[in-house]
Design a protein around this nucleic acid. Sequence first.
DNA 1: ATGTATGTTGCCAA
DNA 2: ATTGGCAACATACA
Length: 276
Amino acid sequence: MPELPEVETVRRGLQKLVLGQKIARVEVLYPKMIVGDADDFRAKLKDQTLENIQRRGKYLLFRFSNGLTVVSHLRMEGKFYVKEATDPVDKHTHVIFYLTDGRQLRYNDVRKFGRMQLVQTGSEEDLLGLAKLGPEPVAETFKVADFYQKLQKKKKNIKTALLDQTLVTGLGNIYVDEVLWQSKIHPQTICQKLTLEQATTLHDNIITELAKAIEAGGTTIRSYTDAFQKTGAFQFELDVYGQTGEPCKRCGTKIQKIVVGQRGTHFCPQCQQVVK
DNA sequence: ATGTATGTTGCCAA
DNA sequence: ATTGGCAACATACA
């Protein structure tokens, strides 16, 4: 599913494919996809040029020439494709941006969980989802001292805490399980119980893991593909996610799957012990 | 056939 | 204030 590395890979692909393109018109086939008025969305984007595509956490930010930004979240299965006008429209295509060069930028989403919203550039920071986001998982913005301080105030388990995007943004269910395994931390460990040493290890692993996953073009478990409809390669580098019953790569103990915060959670019961 | 699991965010309530 | 649970959906599979 699109976590930060997948969203970043999509962004890079779109950047190559449609940057500088002008919108001839927009068609909305499933209006609930658009937060706010779909007709207003269509009207305001007509004749605008796509000047830049940025990312914050798992959100894509399409910057247009008239000071407007389309904020898009892919949620579970959202995808952007660039197609020729003659290519048949998939039954799960919900929004089509007609480009003046004849091609079409299409938004596809089997489960219809994704959302798109048009806002004034700059004001996207006020949106609920973006306002609460923690730092980007890179050394320049994600600091161990802050991370540890925040962990010490939290009473929930580390897995749930990392998923809520406030400590650091970008991790989803797959990468959370991976970084906790790498850091030898049990997913149900209460944040307050983590030592500075553990927090430092976790912090460093989050930064390097997400960078490596971007390099590999993301992880394709069920259906993820990038803007070129290409699958990722990082699924071959996963150590615990989806490895239930397989031997732990460090100690040979069978990987277990449990439920933490209503989410399927993979871990090694030997390497990752709960700190009491 | 029917029920269950899937994963992200937003909303509701304890 | 913080935390937990569920809804929004469609599909695959037992």
